[in-house]
């Protein structure tokens, strides 16, 4: 199987490669449009800021390419946010694969203490749908690090609760995306990556 990880100006791309290697899978990290188009599976990971990464994608014409892909695509973290229509992070127009908007968490004063932003750490995923998740993953904990979230919608295939219920994962046609980091989510994350590879 020919797996490609899209190379762009975002962090943590190597972590995804490491996680695939642990599953015994070799992936290629590349920005070559031909290689991306021909891959069996494409992963679009990322940690970073929305406006600078979107600008980079446009400059390198990766925006049109990603939207046109037909094989299974998995966006991770910033990847998910960039696949939405708009992000409040520096008022950025994104790829629009999902029509959802990305908003900033507002810290919430609680009875005990302020709910912090970023949402950082392990949280449970619920109401799982689609082939990306198997039933045994309901309520399992996965690792999140983010200050912005995608709203819940018809495309939501996993929900997480932090300050409010938000989309922990989205799916439309061949496009899948997780707000959490499967590559850093222990054995649960490894199962989710395996499920994606089986699509």
């Amino acid at each position: 199987m020919n797996i490609v990880i899209i190379k762009y100006n975002a962090g943590n791309i190597e972590s995804v490669n490491n996680a695939l290697n642990r599953l015994g899978v070799n992936a290629e990290i590349t920005a070559d449009p031909d290689k991306i188009r021909k891959a069996d599976k494409v992963i679009f990971p990322g940690v970073g800021e929305a406006s600078t990464t979107m600008a980079y994608l446009r400059e390198n014409k990766l925006d049109e390419l990603i939207v046109s892909l037909k094989q299974p695509v998995l966006g991770i973290c910033l990847g998910l946010q960039l696949m939405c229509s708009h992000s409040e992070e520096n008022d950025t127009e994104c790829l629009g694969i999902f029509d959802e908007k990305v908003k900033r968490f507002i810290p919430k004063p609680g009875e005990e203490y302020i709910t912090k932003v970023p949402h950082m750490g392990w949280n449970a995923i619920q109401d799982l749908k689609s082939d990306l998740f198997t039933a045994d993953l309901e309520n399992e904990y996965v690792y999140f690090v983010h200050s912005y979230y995608a709203e819940k919608s018809e495309h939501t295939i996993a929900t997480c609760n932090y300050i409010l219920p938000f989309s922990a994962a989205l799916h439309r046609d061949n496009f899948y995306a997780t707000q959490f980091h499967p590559e850093k989510s222990g054995t649960i994350g490894a199962k989710i990556l395996e499920n994606f590879l089986k699509l």
Partner: peptide, 8 residues
């Protein structure tokens, strides 16, 4: 560590 460990 990054190659072998699957948590942050």
């Amino acid at each position: 560590i990054a190659a072998h460990i699957n948590i942050p």
